[in-house]
């Protein structure tokens, strides 16, 4: 890391407008996320991906649950709803059924989606509800101060597993695969181009699409496990991510500081809930 020469550079403070500001609630920035948190980067990729899809912005809604990632809904300049803990997917289900012309995106965290909201995510995937789910996985409950999550790898220390987690974590892509999700990908926030592309593909996908985004939590996960800064976690992703498109999801579980297999694992087509309900395809319905 290079540093500036000793002489203090004059600070320029002219009014600047970030090109992504039109898609953000600029009046709420800077956001609440810690320095080096990966959620902001994921949102950055999302708004860029959304712009590239050409889906009209007024026809996109973002729904979040509770937690650090739960705050995403409050920063995107779209119709957005911040639900109770774990319930983003049922809200999105109601909205997607009432407004079939809208693209409903659930943007939430691992604790929100696969722990307290676990029943909702598996059933929404099973129904092939027409929603896109972006799950930020930082392996920990951030907002409440670093408790063990259902995605925390074994051994990892959290405030509720002070001697190291003994539980088996979820392999989230495998879980989603078992439930019948039509699109499953995993990227780290370091893979900005690939993550953006995956988000674009998920947004254009009809049915239940799911992206797991591995993101650094420096304040809690890295600190409690002495993994350095958020930037150190990014370096770890750089050195330990392995891209395996089409990998068997059974094999993509993540151990503590072990290899992270990334890629697009599943991309299939099948009728959505509403198509079956309206009898537009085979598979029952009236």
């Amino acid at each position: 890391m290079s540093t500036a020469p000793a002489k203090a550079a004059p600070v320029e403070r002219k009014e600047l407008h970030h090109p992504k500001d039109t898609m953000l609630r600029e009046d709420r920035l800077p956001h609440i996320w810690c320095p080096t948190c990966g959620i902001g980067t994921a949102v950055s990729c999302f708004v860029e991906a959304l712009r590239e899809t050409n889906i009209p912005e007024e026809k996109v809604a973002v729904v979040s649950g509770i937690g650090c990632t739960g705050r995403v809904a409050g920063y995107v300049n779209l119709d957005s709803f911040h639900t109770t803990h774990g319930r983003a997917i049922p809200f999105a289900t109601g909205l997607a059924l009432a407004k079939p012309d809208m693209k409903v995106v659930v943007f939430s965290g691992d604790g929100d989606l696969v722990a307290i909201g676990g029943n909702h995510i598996i059933n929404a995937a099973r129904r092939n509800m027409n929603i896109t789910v972006i799950c930020i996985n930082n392996f920990i409950y951030g907002m409440t101060g670093g408790q063990c999550a259902s995605t925390t790898p074994q051994i990892a220390k959290t405030s509720t597993t002070p001697t190291g987690n003994t539980d088996y974590p979820f392999n989230v892509p495998y879980l989603m695969d078992a439930c019948g999700a039509t699109y499953i990908a995993r990227w780290t926030v370091l893979h900005i181009r690939r993550l953006k592309k995956a988000m674009g593909e998920a947004l254009n996908k009809k049915g239940f699409s799911f992206i797991e985004v591995i993101a650094p939590c420096a304040t809690l996960y890295a600190r409690r496990n002495r993994l350095g800064t958020g930037f150190d976690l990014m370096k770890f992703y750089h050195d330990n991510s392995e891209i395996q498109h089409g990998a068997d999801t059974k094999m993509v579980d993540i151990g503590f500081q072990e290899k992270i297999i990334c890629g697009k694992f599943v991309d299939i087509d099948k009728p959505t809930f509403l198509e079956r309900y309206r009898g537009e395809t085979n598979g029952g319905g009236k």
Binding site: R87, F91, T93, G94, L95, L97, M102, N119
Partner: peptide
């Protein structure tokens, strides 16, 4: 899948 979900779908549909 449960009543927590049911209640939330109502809110989603209402805002729809």
């Amino acid at each position: 899948e449960d009543e927590m979900a049911s209640m939330n779908t109502l809110l989603g549909a209402a805002w729809g």
